[in-house]
Simulated scan of single mutants.
Amino acid sequence: MTDKSGKSKDVIAVGSCVRITVSDSDAGGSVTCTGVVIEDYEDMVIDRGSVGRDWAPVQRWAIALDDGRLIFANDEDLAATD
């Protein structure tokens, strides 16, 4: 989806249904899951270099997966679903 200027428009928001691929140690690889975005932490996301570490980064979105798990992800990890 694009806006009038032709730039990509954010289609993911709290309440959006999304698809994400997550690691699954039981399956020995990864699996695609669906869920609902329940929180947006955009104001809390910081540049990893500004804190002097690259571990435990803040992820933008909190997603309640359909299987009951809660995960956190960034824009590039998610795809909107219908």
Results as ranks from 00 to 15, higher is better:
17 C>A: 13
55 W>Y: 09
11 V>T: 15
8 S>N: 10
81 T>G: 06
63 I>G: 14
24 D>P: 00
14 V>F: 11
35 G>F: 05
22 V>Y: 02
9 K>H: 15
23 S>H: 04
12 I>F: 10
77 D>C: 08
41 Y>M: 10
20 I>A: 02
51 V>L: 15
28 G>R: 03
8 S>V: 15
11 V>C: 14
34 T>M: 09
23 S>D: 08
78 L>C: 06
2 T>G: 12
15 G>P: 00
77 D>R: 00
24 D>K: 01
27 A>I: 02
54 D>G: 13
66 D>H: 02
19 R>F: 02
10 D>S: 15
76 E>F: 10
67 D>C: 13
75 D>M: 01
9 K>G: 13
64 A>V: 02
50 S>P: 03
73 A>H: 05
33 C>H: 02
14 V>C: 07
16 S>L: 11
25 S>L: 13
42 E>A: 11
36 V>L: 01
78 L>R: 00
57 P>T: 09
14 V>D: 05
72 F>K: 04
52 G>Y: 03
14 V>A: 09
52 G>V: 08
41 Y>L: 10
61 W>S: 08
78 L>Y: 00
4 K>D: 02
29 G>L: 02
36 V>M: 01
33 C>Q: 06
43 D>M: 10
50 S>R: 05
81 T>P: 03
39 E>F: 09
45 V>N: 02
7 K>P: 01
29 G>I: 01
4 K>N: 13
71 I>K: 06
59 Q>I: 00
22 V>S: 06
58 V>C: 15
40 D>Y: 08
1 M>F: 09
71 I>H: 06
21 T>A: 07
11 V>I: 07
81 T>R: 02
15 G>C: 04
82 D>Q: 13
74 N>T: 04
71 I>R: 08
33 C>A: 01
14 V>S: 04
38 I>V: 14
47 D>N: 15
19 R>L: 07
21 T>H: 01
82 D>N: 12
14 V>H: 06
17 C>S: 09
30 S>W: 03
69 R>K: 04
3 D>S: 12
65 L>W: 02
67 D>V: 09
78 L>K: 00
80 A>E: 10
64 A>Q: 11
35 G>Q: 00
23 S>N: 04
22 V>P: 06
19 R>V: 09
45 V>K: 05
55 W>D: 13
21 T>R: 03
49 G>F: 08
63 I>S: 03
31 V>K: 12
44 M>C: 05
74 N>M: 11
25 S>R: 07
30 S>M: 04
53 R>P: 08
43 D>W: 01
1 M>V: 08
81 T>N: 00
61 W>E: 08
26 D>S: 12
51 V>I: 15
62 A>V: 12
58 V>M: 10
75 D>V: 05
58 V>E: 10
48 R>Y: 01
72 F>D: 01
82 D>V: 11
18 V>C: 04
63 I>W: 06
47 D>T: 10
